[in-house]
Simulated assay, not measured.
Amino acid sequence: MAALAWLLIPLVAAIGAGLWGSWATRHRKTGDGPELAGYERFRQAMERSHSGPDAA
C-alpha cells in the first residue's frame, strides 16, 4: 500500500501541473484601448511642444 501511495504522488503532481499549465495559458481578453489612447495623447502633446516657433 505504501508503494501505491508513492506512485500516486507524482501522478497527482502531474495532474496539478497540467491544470496549472492550462490555466496559465488561457486566453484572456485584455483591452488595450485606454493604454493606446493615453499613448496617442502623449504623442500629440510631444508633437505640439516641438512644433512651436522656437523649434530648432
Rank of each mutant, 00 (worst) to 15 (best):
W23N: 01
Q44D: 14
G52T: 09
K29Y: 08
H27K: 10
L11S: 03
L11Q: 06
T30W: 10
T30A: 03
R28N: 12
W6E: 02
A3Y: 15
R41H: 08
S22C: 15
A2I: 08
L19W: 09
M1C: 08
E47L: 02
L11G: 14
A56C: 13
A45L: 03
Q44P: 00
R41K: 14
H50F: 14
H27A: 06
A2P: 01
A37E: 15
G33F: 09
S51N: 15
W20I: 01
A56G: 10
M1P: 00
A24Q: 15
L7K: 08
A2E: 10
L36V: 05
A17T: 02
P34Y: 05
Q44E: 07
R43S: 06
R48N: 08
T25E: 14
M1D: 13
T25D: 14
R43N: 12
D54R: 13
S22G: 13
L19P: 00
T25Q: 14
Q44Y: 11
R26P: 00
R43K: 06
S49L: 07
D54F: 06
G16L: 03
V12S: 07
E40M: 10
S22V: 13
P10T: 02
E40A: 07
H27Y: 09
R41W: 10
G21R: 10
I9Q: 02
W20M: 11
A56F: 14
R43D: 11
R28Q: 05
S49A: 13
T25F: 15
V12E: 08
H27N: 09
R41S: 04
S51L: 06
A56T: 09
T25Y: 05
I15P: 00
H27D: 15
E40T: 10
A14R: 05
P34L: 09
K29H: 12
S51H: 07
R26Q: 05
D54P: 00
M1Y: 02
Y39L: 14
M1F: 10
S49Q: 06
W6P: 00
G33H: 08
A13C: 15
P34V: 04
E47M: 10
Y39C: 09
A56Q: 09
Y39S: 04
A3F: 10
S49F: 12
R28I: 09
K29L: 12
A45G: 05
A55P: 00
E47T: 13
A45R: 15
S49H: 13
E40R: 04
L4M: 09
L4Y: 15
D54H: 14
H50D: 11
R48P: 00
L36P: 00
L8F: 05
S51Q: 06
D54W: 11
A55L: 13
E40Q: 03
G18V: 01
G52Q: 04
M1V: 06
G16S: 14
K29C: 04
A14P: 00
W20V: 03
L36I: 14
R41E: 02
L8G: 01
H27R: 07
A37F: 04
L4F: 10
M46W: 07
L19Y: 15
A56P: 03
G31Y: 13
R26F: 05
R48K: 05
H50G: 02
L36K: 04
M1G: 06
T25G: 07
V12Y: 10
A2S: 12
R26Y: 04
